[in-house]
């Protein structure tokens, strides 16, 4: 492998990792703060992508569609939390798994009924179309750089909100002692609604910004869900920083193994996860 190709592959790996982070961050937030195991998280990624496709075909505008999709998913998140998830805070994880698996089936059927089963694509917005010359015969798509910038931006925002703001402080406090925070007069119910809706929105944003570079197909949610669980487990449940590092590691490892040993590419991240768990059973940055 030439140095040039090596650098390109590092870029590819980081790019892939950043997108994984965006999906995994919502998952780890909901799991870490609220103790809710949300298997339907991948479905929100799918919902984001399908809504995006739908609105782009109707309105033709990328920005308007993205704004509409985010709003809808945010409302959907609030609705799901208020109607369903709220009843499951004191139940065990198995009950939560049953509920959220059920939600996967519901969302998949809705997708099939509303949008059909053909693969769809969203085109890259004109302003971000094109590429930066990379080697003599290939370019690096501007849109992928845009995706990376958005992902890093959201990572920074998350870090700031959780670490530096009053809201973040309450979230962290709620995580370590729910009753005490409640006793101090914080409305924990609304706080949890916000966290859940926000987590769901992160998955949907990933689906929205990935829509021009991925194919929008039935089952797209489940395929990212598993990889994101691997990221969350490696990073340590509930740790945003852990999810960030783990996502980049998983991105880089799967990119390089995909080239060097294509047949191992799917397996390697699980092997990596096992190795991490052998050394640090709680994940890299467990609390």
């Amino acid at each position: 492998m030439t140095t040039e190709l090596f650098i390109v592959q590092v870029l590819n790996g980081i790019q892939y990792g950043l997108l994984l982070f965006l999906i995994a961050s919502g998952l780890t937030l909901v799991l870490g703060v609220m103790g809710i195991l949300n298997l339907a998280h991948g479905s929100m990624y799918m919902v984001g992508a399908y809504l995006m496709w739908y609105f782009v075909t109707v309105t033709g505008s990328f920005t308007v569609s993205a704004a509409l999709s985010v709003t809808i998913v945010l409302s959907l998140g609030i609705l799901i939390e208020r109607v369903l998830i709220q009843r499951f805070y004191n139940r065990n994880h198995l009950d939560q798994v049953l509920l959220t698996i059920g939600m996967i089936f519901v969302f998949n059927s809705l997708q099939s009924i509303l949008f059909g089963n053909d693969p769809y694509g969203v085109s890259v917005p004109d302003a971000l179309d094109g590429g930066i010359p990379l080697t003599n015969n290939s370019t690096y798509p501007v849109y992928r750089i845009f995706v990376a910038v958005i992902c890093v931006g959201i990572a920074g925002l998350l870090y700031f909100v959780i670490g530096r703001t009053r809201l973040g402080m309450m979230i962290r406090a709620g995580e370590s002692n729910r009753e005490m925070v409640e006793a101090l007069g914080v409305n924990i119910k609304s706080l949890y609604t916000i966290v859940f809706a926000f987590g769901v929105m992160l998955a949907a944003i990933a689906g929205i910004i990935a829509s021009p570079v991925s194919s929008i197909v039935p089952g797209m949610g489940e395929s990212v869900l598993i990889t994101c669980f691997v990221v969350v487990v490696i990073g340590g449940m509930g740790s945003i920083k852990g999810a960030f590092i783990a996502a980049l590691l998983v991105g880089l490892i799967s990119t390089f193994f995909s080239i060097l040993m294509p047949s191992m590419a799917n397996m390697i991240i699980y092997i990596f996860m096992i190795l991490v768990l052998l050394i640090k059973p709680q994940g890299l940055f467990a609390k």
Binding site: T2, E4, L5, V8, Q9, N12, G13, Q15, Y16, L134, T135, N137, S138, S214, S215, S223, S254, T255, F256, S258, I259, P262, S263, A265, N266, M267
Partner: peptide, 20 residues
């Protein structure tokens, strides 16, 4: 000749390789 695990769609690394 590259055979990717089904149904992986992480094609970018391979497309970079094709360019090289």
């Amino acid at each position: 000749k590259v055979l990717l695990p089904f149904p992986s769609t992480n094609f970018q690394p391979h497309i970079s390789d094709i360019a090289a």
